[in-house]
Simulated assay, not measured.
Amino acid sequence: MTQSTLFSAGTGPAVRAREFAASEMFEKLFSEGMELVEETASYLDGPGRADSKQLDRAGALSYATESMKLTTRLMQAASWLLAQRAVAEGEMSAEDATDGKYRLGMDRPTDNLWPEDESPPAYLGTLVERSRSLYARLKRIDDNLYSDAGGEVDANPVADQMAMLRGAFSQS
């Protein structure tokens, strides 16, 4: 099913948000997103700690940065999903969900975090790719739902801070 057939033609953002929040597609995305959050937390709190201890100093810094970006991306996705669920359950109006503070900003993935002679632990890499895929799908839906809601989403302040940190640490 394409996104153009998900929502009633000619409807506004609030109507589309209500329709989406009540859909089976949303239920599946919500389950997938929350399962990925739980799986990531379990990895980072368990096997991920052991994985990070096997890395050299540069690799450990890359691991910390990657896991922070992963966690941030998933928190943003979970927040968006929870806002949509609040619409579905009548705890938030669909009109309120069109507010920019509930919208998803652009994800700014960083592919070159790892030193040339090191790569991320395999499972971390898998979680990163899955989180990027989920976020990209949610972002496309968000853009489709709220395309004429007005108000652009502000830049991602966490991503901006990460970029500043990378710049500070990459200088010799």
Rank of each mutant, 00 (worst) to 15 (best):
M1P: 11
M1I: 03
Q3M: 00
Q3F: 02
Q3S: 00
F7T: 02
A9W: 10
G10C: 08
T11Y: 05
T11R: 12
G12F: 06
P13I: 06
V15Q: 09
V15C: 08
F20V: 06
F20S: 04
S23I: 05
E24W: 13
E24I: 11
M25C: 09
K28Q: 09
K28W: 13
F30I: 05
F30W: 14
F30E: 10
G33V: 04
V37H: 06
E38Q: 13
E38G: 11
A41C: 05
A41Y: 10
R49G: 11
A50C: 13
A50I: 15
S52D: 14
S52Q: 15
D56E: 15
D56C: 13
A58E: 07
G59D: 06
A64P: 01
A64D: 02
E66Y: 01
S67Y: 02
K69N: 14
L70M: 01
L70I: 00
T71D: 02
R73I: 04
R73S: 07
L74Q: 07
L74M: 04
L74G: 02
M75A: 06
A78P: 12
S79T: 11
S79V: 08
L81N: 00
L82A: 13
L82S: 12
L82D: 12
R85E: 08
R85F: 09
A86H: 10
A88V: 10
A88P: 04
A88C: 10
E89C: 04
E89Y: 04
E91G: 08
E91P: 05
E91W: 06
M92P: 04
S93H: 07
S93A: 03
S93D: 10
S93I: 05
A97I: 03
K101Y: 13
Y102L: 06
L104T: 07
L104C: 03
L104D: 04
G105I: 09
G105N: 14
M106V: 15
M106H: 14
R108C: 11
R108I: 15
T110H: 13
N112W: 08
L113F: 08
L113T: 12
P115N: 10
P115Q: 08
D117P: 02
D117Q: 00
E118T: 13
E118Y: 00
S119F: 00
S119A: 09
P120K: 05
G125D: 02
T126H: 04
T126S: 11
L127G: 00
V128C: 03
V128A: 01
R130P: 00
S131K: 02
R132M: 09
Y135N: 01
A136S: 10
R137S: 09
D142M: 01
D143L: 09
L145Y: 10
D148F: 14
D148R: 14
D148L: 12
G151V: 15
E152H: 11
N156F: 08
P157V: 01
V158A: 11
A159Q: 11
Q161W: 10
M162A: 11
M162N: 08
M162H: 06
G167C: 04
G167D: 08
F169H: 12
F169L: 15
S170C: 01
S170D: 04
Q171M: 07
S172F: 05
S172Q: 02
